[in-house]
C-alpha cells in the first residue's frame, strides 16, 4: 500500500465503500464528503494515514448515525456500523427509494436520504452522497436553518444537474420533518 493514498481511495478501492464519490480529487466539489471525528471533510484531501485511530462516518453509515442520534444514542459520535453492513447499505437504500410514500419507522423517515428522494433532489446522483453528509451535519448543528444558512453550508458541494433548487427543498423538508413531534 502506497502511503500517499487518500482516505477516499482507501474507502473506495480498498474497503469497498464506493458511496463517497471522486468527482474532482482536489477538494472542490464536495462529492467525497465524510465526517472525520464529526467534522465534515473532503476525504480526497485527507491522507489515509491521518485517519489512524479516528472515527469516520461515510454516507453508507449515515442512516445508522442519524438513527442513533435521534434515538438518543451517542452524541455526534460514530455508531459503529460494521464494514459489512456498510458495504451492504446500497440495497437497503434502494428499497427505501422503491417504497416512496410508504412510512418507514419514525427514525428512518426523518432521514435526510428520504427527503432528497421525496423532493426530487437527485438527478445523476453523483453529488448526492456528499450533499447528504453535509446536509445531515448542517441539520445536526442547526435544526432550523435559514435559506442563507443552507446555501452557505452546502457551498462546498457542487451539483451540475439539479440547479440546487430541489436540494434546497430537500434540506428544508428534512428540517421540517425533524422538527415534527416523534411518531408523526
Amino acid at each position: 500500500m502506497w502511503e500517499g493514498e487518500s482516505l477516499l481511495y482507501v474507502l473506495r478501492e480498498r474497503m469497498g465503500l464506493p458511496g463517497s464519490k471522486n468527482a474532482c480529487e482536489q477538494g472542490e466539489c464536495g462529492s467525497c464528503t465524510v465526517r472525520l471525528d464529526g467534522v465534515p471533510v473532503c476525504s480526497c484531501l485527507v491522507a489515509a494515514g491521518q485517519v489512524e485511530g479516528r472515527e469516520v462516518v461515510t454516507v453508507e453509515g449515515l442512516a445508522d448515525f442519524a438513527k442513533n442520534r435521534s434515538c438518543g444514542g451517542h452524541e455526534g459520535g460514530a455508531c459503529g456500523t460494521s464494514l459489512q453492513e456498510a458495504q451492504g447499505w446500497f440495497r437497503q437504500g434502494h428499497r427505501l427509494a422503491d417504497r416512496r410514500g410508504r412510512h418507514l419507522p419514525a427514525c428512518d423517515a426523518r432521514a435526510i436520504q428520504q427527503a432528497f428522494i421525496d423532493a426530487g433532489a437527485v438527478q445523476c446522483g453523483f453529488c448526492t452522497p456528499g450533499l447528504l453528509v453535509a446536509s445531515d451535519e448542517l441539520l445536526e448543528r442547526n435544526p432550523n436553518p435559514s435559506d442563507a444558512d443552507i446555501r452557505e453550508a452546502l457551498s462546498g458541494n457542487l451539483c451540475r444537474c439539479t440547479g440546487y433548487e430541489k436540494i434546497m427543498d430537500a434540506v428544508r423538508l428534512a428540517a421540517a420533518r425533524q422538527s415534527e413531534p416523534e411518531g408523526v
Partner: peptide, 19 residues
C-alpha cells in the same frame, strides 16, 4: 485548474429566489 477555475455555479451563486 479545476471546478473552481473556471468557476462553476455553486449554491450561493444560485438565485436566492427560485427559478
Amino acid at each position: 485548474h479545476g471546478l473552481s477555475d473556471p468557476h462553476h455555479p455553486r449554491h450561493p451563486d444560485h438565485p436566492g429566489r427560485c427559478a
